[in-house]
Design a protein around this nucleic acid. Structure first.
Lengths: 409, 409
DNA sequence: AATAACTTTTTAAAATTTTTATTAAGTGTG
DNA sequence: CACACTTAATAAAAATTTTAAAAAGTTATT
């Protein structure tokens, strides 16, 4: 049964567990600062959590000029998180344990989102099987986190673009079917969250995470937190009107950023040019119908230094840079991170983006803005989905058995 | 002497005074929530502040379904704030008392910022005279708040565009000269802050405040707070590259938003068209050299329904709307406020901006975004400067005498 | 129109949490 | 290798919050 939070103390227990999930090892002073409670109280909570077998001492950290602090970690298997990363064609599911390690294999399967009225049911069926295979009781699963494309309202638990469900929200339907707390968010927001928690945006305040994939998403980090806007739709970078190119976009408007920069466009343009221009390249053929395969070929070739592939990506990168210049003017970030599947092409992105920034920004405003390539790569979204659950861990509906265990204290 | 904060209790005293400055009348429960302390403690603080003659009871508020709450107000003259609003040509100074009322007249004088190495000294001289004329001791003045154009770093207290000062920051130079805590910020940020505290953005979370004047500034309110970005430069709306018009901008780049939308451009275009086209209009003549005068004439005529003036402003408004469409995609705000001196033209702005939003936004994302015209008008910046001081009131360096008075408690 | 049931504010007493002071453990310098 | 200076952990004192109860109003119902 999914109920409500039971005690205040339990909330702080959960906060401690949450920060230990995100950080692996922390001292009592660290945790005291993070949960906003005094050191004596935090000491007490930690002692109790150790006697509950949830937290363990991990020896002393190096001194910073005085007595060395004892550090603490969370045990593996105290709880688990089910992470789901969806794109328009493929969905991946992973099981992550409380010590923040992916358990077993990441499951990958086709699930078409566009014009598929059955997509939500398919997702639920897959989730049921996946969770069944883990052999874990529901009470051991803290929550399910799902990243998906489209206009997602995290608070309402709805997606206005995909996975339509007639009555109520996606979240309530999944929770009813599986009896596990569930959270959903936009894929690019989760990529941003992953960068904030474990990637290049860690400990930064103002970062723009550009999710280069079949569209150009944006995760906005402002004041050290993921920014979602009024309805959760912030970061709709793909569709800002930027070009006079008269190309019609998937959204129906003309000249969106996406029409010159997404990997779909890159793959299509690549296929066309390869055929027409007979350019020398490591790539022998590109099929404009098989976007994913073609995009991967181009990214791989670019890695090997293939000029044709690099030129293709550079052109897209420069156009992305024009959009980034606008972001810099408006939000004055300290960092731009290129993430998502496109980031696998590596440093190729950097020079053209920096070039566009130099050309289109007032120098002073871009002075302290660094461009970086994500090191999280293809895993960013799935990691971000776990972060979404754990970011809300202490607010999550409580699972009965666990609640009793904790309240028995 | 400017020293440091003395006691924790004093910090809460100041927080209470701050919230009473912003709100006029508040109940104990309101204040308890605002300062984040329990009701019994807040009661105690209020009692003490009343015995210090700083706070007074203001009778009972209407019931909301139960016992009516006692309300409290701050006394006039407990402290004062000096507010300064600068633009490139004119500076205004006002004295505001603790009950949030402008005392006496707003002083207005010419102060050229561009290419004026003496501008900071001129400002300091004016401030000295102004404060001298108030006959108030420094200890009665909580702080000086200054809004100015340019790239302002509030934390460092510097402006990279105007009011250059060789050694150290603008803030430290003013503080050294006047012995009064001082804060500076970008003019558009302060217009945004004014809207947040007393205008159309009050109690909203995500709002874009467009400051229409000699440029097009932007105050960004995100999560209910003014957003400044990494170095304080966020909201550089004027210079996002948006047009293929080949017009060179004051910043040196081509096609900035400003080149089609600022009141300078409107005035210049108006003067040109009036001469060339001999259009019928209530306006008899416009001098392209005297921008302020011409802009005012156009705004006034638009108010009277003059078609020529309305067309001029509508064109600029539509272009602003294109920029606003980008803001909506990126930040998903709940409200767009047209503020600053241009807002005096009133509702003329609304239809063309809404039109541009309809044309350039994905409908879903703009669904809940309202466009509004500010009611604060020309006073926004000067009010915002006072808000800047009071927003930081409890963090401000303490003035010795006052500190002793409070600590004597 | 009067009473019961429900709200909200205010006050008082009990329980919790933080602060301050003290002790313990470790670094770096002349 | 003392000596001065850190930081961490613990214990006792002080401050703050929570809980409970009383006071003051509102709304619905008979």
């Amino acid at each position: 049964m999914i109920g409500n939070i039971i005690s205040k103390k339990q909330k702080f227990y959960k906060e401690i567990l949450k920060y230990l999930f995100f950080n692996k090892q922390l001292s009592c002073a660290d945790l005291s600062g993070l949960i906003g409670k005094s050191i004596p109280l935090t000491t007490q909570y930690l002692t109790e959590l150790m006697s509950l077998n949830m937290v363990v001492e991990k020896g002393y950290a190096a001194s910073t000029g005085g007595r060395r602090p004892q550090t603490y970690s969370i045990r593996s298997g105290v709880f688990y998180v089910v992470s789901v990363a969806m794109d328009q064609l493929v969905t991946r599911i992973a099981l992550i344990s409380s010590d923040n390690i992916i358990v077993g294999e990441v499951e990958k399967f086709d699930l078409i989102l566009a014009n598929n009225p059955n997509s939500l049911n398919e997702l639920i069926t897959h989730l049921k099987t996946f969770i069944g295979n883990t052999k874990l009781p529901e009470s051991k699963i803290a929550g399910i986190g799902i990243g998906m494309p489209g206009f997602v309202d995290t608070e309402k638990g709805t997606n206005y673009t995909f996975l339509h469900c007639a009555d109520g929200s996606i979240v309530s339907k999944i929770q009813d079917a599986l009896q596990i707390p569930t959270l959903i968010d936009n894929d690019s927001s989760l990529v941003g969250l992953a960068e904030l928690k474990w990637g290049a945006a860690k400990n930064k305040e103002h970062v723009m995470v550009v999710n280069v994939g079949w569209g150009i998403g944006l995760g906005i980090i402002s004041n050290g937190k993921l920014f979602r806007g009024k309805d959760g739709f912030a970061g709709e970078f793909s569709h800002i009107p930027l070009f006079d190119n008269n190309k019609i976009c998937s959204c129906g408007k003309l000249g969106c950023l996406e029409t010159e920069t997404s990997l779909v466009v890159v793959a299509q343009k690549g296929a066309r040019q390869l055929k027409k221009l007979q350019q020398p390249s490591l790539i022998k053929s590109l099929n404009a119908e098989r976007i994913e395969e073609s995009a991967k070929k181009i990214i791989e070739a670019a890695h090997k230094g293939d000029k044709f592939a690099i030129d293709l990506l550079s052109e897209a990168a420069y156009h992305i840079g024009r959009g980034v210049a606008i972001l810099i003017h408006l939000l004055n970030p300290e960092e731009i991170i290129i993430s998502g599947i496109g980031s696998l092409a590596g440093k190729v992105w950097m020079a053209p983006i920096q070039q566009a920034i130099n050309e289109h920004c007032i120098p002073k405003i871009a002075e302290h803005t660094e461009v970086k390539i994500s090191s999280l790569g293809y895993n960013a979204e799935i990691i971000g989905a776990a972060a979404l659950v754990m970011d809300n861990y202490e607010k999550l509906p409580v699972i009965k058995e666990e609640a009793e265990k904790l309240i028995a204290q």
